[in-house]
């Protein structure tokens, strides 16, 4: 039984997850592009690469903007969280070795203790975000159930991954949970608020263009 489940989640399910993610993302990009062409031509007419990059640059650099300096804890957490969120899954030894096994390709991987710490950082950051939603009234007011669910969806593969790596208990079950939760996370990115990952460069870049080229002002 275990072998069947594992074969599925490690085989076809991975293909399904990556396909849903890439095709879904492409679909979101293309349909949004076409919608914008039809109804928001202003976005294309006023888009300026220089000012778009100027704005994006200021917002992906820690403490470059006024609001980031106003919320130092949030800034540190947000940057650590996003860096670890991307680096760990891609450069974890166990993940690279899976690619090595399947496709005979590999790249440098992180030392396991480093990855271990980074995963804990992700989990602590998730707790921080959770705490914000509970304790800050301006965030609590905006928060709905789906925001908690999405936070849980992000945290799940990392918690289960940490658990599986340390083999605390019920290793096999947790390992399967880890794989499945990771695949679910990948699949929901294009269709939930996690799509901010896809659209960030566009919203930021467009606003940067308007502020820079038309309004001659900063937007950070």
């Amino acid at each position: 039984m275990m072998h069947e489940i594992f074969s599925f989640v490690r085989g076809p399910m991975v293909w399904i997850a990556f396909t849903v993610f890439t095709v879904g993302s492409l679909y979101r990009f293309i349909s949004m592009w076409r919608l914008a062409k039809k109804k928001d031509s202003v976005v294309f007419n006023y888009f300026s690469f220089f000012y778009a990059l100027r704005s994006i640059g200021h917002w992906i650099f820690p403490f470059a903007g006024v609001n980031m300096r106003k919320h130092p804890a949030m800034t540190v957490v947000a940057f650590l969280f996003h860096i670890c969120l991307f680096v760990v899954p891609i450069f974890l030894s166990a993940h690279v070795i899976m690619f090595k096994e399947s496709w005979n390709i590999s790249w440098r991987w992180l030392p396991d203790p480093a990855a271990d710490i980074m995963v804990m950082i992700v989990i602590v950051c998730c707790l921080f975000f959770w705490g914000r939603r509970i304790f800050l009234k301006e965030v609590r007011y905006l928060t709905s159930v789906s925001d908690y669910l999405i936070l849980a969806a992000v945290a799940a593969p990392f918690i289960s991954g940490l658990w599986a790596y340390h083999q605390w208990t019920a290793f096999s079950a947790v390992m399967i949970v880890h794989i499945i939760s990771g695949e679910i996370l990948l699949m929901i990115i294009p269709f939930t608020k996690l799509s901010h990952m896809l659209f960030f460069p566009f919203t930021r870049g467009y606003m940067g263009s308007e502020f820079g080229a038309v309004r001659h002002a900063k937007d950070w």
Binding site: H3, A94, K100, N104, H166, Q167, M175
Partner: peptide, 30 residues
Amino acid sequence: DLIRAYHLQCSGCHLKQKAGPVLCGECHRR
């Protein structure tokens, strides 16, 4: 390469035979 050879040799066969450990931590036990 060596890592791949070991993994394919062991878990590759286990998967094929549907017997024996296949998850990372089932062999590399702490």
